[in-house]
Design a protein around this nucleic acid. Sequence first.
DNA 1: TTTGTAATTTAGGTTAGGCTAAAATATAAA
DNA 2: TTTATATTTTAGCCTAACCTAAATTACAAA
Lengths: 220, 220
Amino acid sequence: MNLTTAEENYLKAIYHLSDGGKKSVSTNDVAGEMNTKPASVSDMLRKLGEKEVIEYRKYYGVNITDEGKKRALQTIRKHRLWEVFLVEKLNFAWDEVHEVAEELEHIQSPLLIQRLDAFLNYPKFDPHGDPIPDEFGDVRARPRIPLNEMELNQSGQIVAVKDSSAAFLRYLDKVGAYIGARIKVLDKVEFDGSLEILVDQKKNIFMSKDVAGNILVLQS
Amino acid sequence: MNLTTAEENYLKAIYHLSDGGKKSVSTNDVAGEMNTKPASVSDMLRKLGEKEVIEYRKYYGVNITDEGKKRALQTIRKHRLWEVFLVEKLNFAWDEVHEVAEELEHIQSPLLIQRLDAFLNYPKFDPHGDPIPDEFGDVRARPRIPLNEMELNQSGQIVAVKDSSAAFLRYLDKVGAYIGARIKVLDKVEFDGSLEILVDQKKNIFMSKDVAGNILVLQS
DNA sequence: TTTGTAATTTAGGTTAGGCTAAAATATAAA
DNA sequence: TTTATATTTTAGCCTAACCTAAATTACAAA
């Protein structure tokens, strides 16, 4: 079930106020954080309770549910990725980005966020130093492995290269294996360790073990 | 005075339906374009009339004002800049960008658009070949003719499509006729008007008169 | 010139997300 | 244990953007 922009903002506020779901949060606290009146908050809490992203007991404040935590972290992830984009790519100052990111975080497109993440080279922290949750809401770093060490039929995303020489990058460009590409191992030749890879669900490419060893993949 | 997201969308629809303000537009036409009921449109036209972005005479349709034109072009500018971003930076296919750009175009931040424009190196055309208005609403139009009207042996560049349905764009992608491709008419079959085209000096493709009629070419 | 029909507007209702004022509840203090 | 007070909820109202049904208007055909 989907949340509206307002609901997403309330949920994010509750997440922050509860310190990531550790403590319960009062109606007044939420009203303060959201710059709304307590009466409006009561109404919204009822709705969020019905959608089961918070546990709401009248007069006793709210606790965020696991589902709610997941949703809040997704919004936070989007917010922070956009902040990185604004600072690193569009030359915004670190203190100019919040307002705009507050709008951008509500754009609905999982693909957009996946691609943005790849484009920014999977940043782990936003410009304020806050950690960026991964797509599962996990804040810990994920392991990257060389492409040649992946198992048959495993999927992932190209996130980096070991050899970043112009020649190697040109080669990758030519075969269509850019940073951020979603890949799947279709075949591994035992004889020489070479691989057949499906790129972005449409293009098949072949590469030697040496080449694959220089490509780092985030498993998914 | 500011426009809401819904108002911006209506204004954009009116701008397109009126062919850039050249003709007046009926309530029914707007309802069709916006997938809403005529009754809802009447309501919205009254509001837009009060905000003086359109001239509204009950029962006689609307004309867009100069101020309205400026606003519509700003929205169109934002939409097309985001499309360029999605295709060139995030590796979206050109038939995947419209929906997301439809959301992104409503982000309110003149600075964001200025910086995005610079980041993209001031593109003049979007991935579908449509011109991107500058910040004052000026467009640099290029003369374009349908591919089927080109003469034998004439050369040019594909700059736009009339039919931008996902199916048509996928078809073009498949045969290799992307926006920006340099083409030459190798043969015109008199019987059915179908064409043989050389793409990028290397690939021969065949297409029906209907398909060619939906492809716009800049002659060279 | 009248009239049938299509187009359009008005009237009144809905949902989301706000508000104020009044009522209800929890809790700390006496 | 009672009561004062702060917190929270309810009731009722507002605007934006939709809706349906009914009324109105324009216009073409007779």
